[in-house]
Amino acid sequence: MTDTAQRLLSSATAAFAAKGFHGTTTRDIASGAGVTPGAVYVHHKSKEDLLYSISKVGHEKTLDLVRTSAAASEGGSPVSRIAALVRNLAQWQAANHTSSRVVNFELPALSEDHLSEVLQMRHQVEDEFRSIVNDGMQQGVFRVPDANMAVVTLLSLCIDVARWYRSDGRLSAAEIGEHHSLMALRLLGVEGR
């Protein structure tokens, strides 16, 4: 990727996070990247194509993080596995809060084909969580009435960090991850946590 293309992606990420997709113009993106508006179209077919690139990379990184976290804790108890998974995902959302806001909350602006591709990755993330929640329920260590709703709740807990987290806030990204992993265990009805 050229330096200009990377600057355009960075500028688009910052602009989409600050103004939303529909509130951002290609002129905003070009200005932030230090190029003319026409340069946007040299590197991307459209503003939506920029959003798709940001969203695709963000979802690929999230899926990789979730799979790596799940694999690293494989063989451990469902309690330790879900704690690690939530800790890592919440921390990542905080550490990457600007791009995460775009990746997670600008999905409606994607074209139907692009949205379909991104949603497949989101479903794979859900499947990783669901596998651990189901294991915990079968072993009797997680006490929730509905595994699917538990997964939605856990993912919301992690993903929403990007909406409110600020680097200059009271807690670091790592502290947010620790806090959220403890809250996840309480949500799942784990005793003694």
Score class of each variant (00 low, 15 high):
residue 136 G to T: 08
residue 163 R to E: 05
residue 71 A to F: 03
residue 124 Q to A: 14
residue 128 E to M: 11
residue 108 P to R: 06
residue 131 S to A: 15
residue 112 E to D: 04
residue 97 H to E: 07
residue 73 S to M: 06
residue 158 C to F: 06
residue 87 R to Q: 10
residue 117 E to K: 14
residue 112 E to V: 00
residue 116 S to G: 10
residue 80 S to A: 13
residue 72 A to Q: 14
residue 140 G to W: 11
residue 64 D to W: 08
residue 95 A to N: 04
residue 126 E to I: 07
residue 66 V to S: 01
residue 70 A to Y: 08
residue 137 M to S: 00
residue 83 A to S: 12
residue 138 Q to I: 00
residue 142 F to C: 12
residue 106 E to Y: 07
residue 112 E to S: 08
residue 122 R to H: 08
residue 113 D to W: 01
residue 153 T to P: 00
residue 128 E to F: 06
residue 163 R to M: 09
residue 151 V to L: 05
residue 117 E to L: 14
residue 149 M to H: 08
residue 71 A to V: 07
residue 141 V to D: 10
residue 78 P to W: 10
residue 79 V to K: 14
residue 108 P to K: 09
residue 73 S to G: 04
residue 63 L to M: 08
residue 127 D to G: 12
residue 151 V to K: 08
residue 146 D to G: 11
residue 84 A to D: 10
residue 91 Q to K: 15
residue 78 P to F: 09
residue 144 V to M: 12
residue 85 L to Y: 09
residue 112 E to A: 05
residue 149 M to A: 12
residue 136 G to F: 07
residue 97 H to I: 03
residue 137 M to E: 03
residue 78 P to S: 05
residue 62 T to H: 03
residue 88 N to E: 11
residue 115 L to I: 00
residue 79 V to T: 15
residue 138 Q to V: 02
residue 63 L to F: 07
residue 83 A to R: 13
residue 148 N to T: 14
residue 114 H to P: 01
residue 164 W to K: 05
residue 74 E to C: 04
residue 59 H to W: 15
residue 153 T to E: 08
residue 68 T to C: 07
residue 70 A to L: 04
residue 131 S to N: 07
residue 88 N to G: 13
residue 76 G to W: 05
residue 163 R to L: 06
residue 148 N to P: 02
residue 105 F to R: 09
residue 158 C to P: 02
residue 90 A to T: 13
residue 106 E to M: 06
residue 113 D to R: 15
residue 129 F to E: 05
residue 59 H to E: 13
residue 67 R to C: 11
residue 68 T to Q: 07
residue 72 A to G: 12
residue 106 E to S: 13
residue 115 L to V: 02
residue 161 V to P: 13
residue 129 F to N: 01
residue 66 V to R: 03
residue 76 G to Y: 02
residue 96 N to H: 15
residue 88 N to A: 12
residue 60 E to P: 00
residue 76 G to V: 01
residue 136 G to P: 01
residue 127 D to A: 15
residue 87 R to A: 11
residue 74 E to Y: 03
residue 75 G to H: 06
residue 144 V to I: 15
residue 67 R to T: 02
residue 116 S to A: 15
residue 61 K to R: 04
residue 118 V to S: 14
residue 82 I to V: 13
residue 125 V to K: 02
residue 82 I to S: 05
residue 78 P to M: 14
residue 132 I to A: 06
residue 124 Q to K: 15
residue 161 V to D: 04
residue 92 W to S: 13
residue 60 E to D: 09
residue 119 L to K: 12
residue 141 V to E: 06
residue 115 L to H: 15
residue 129 F to K: 01
residue 155 L to S: 08
residue 81 R to T: 02
residue 73 S to K: 07
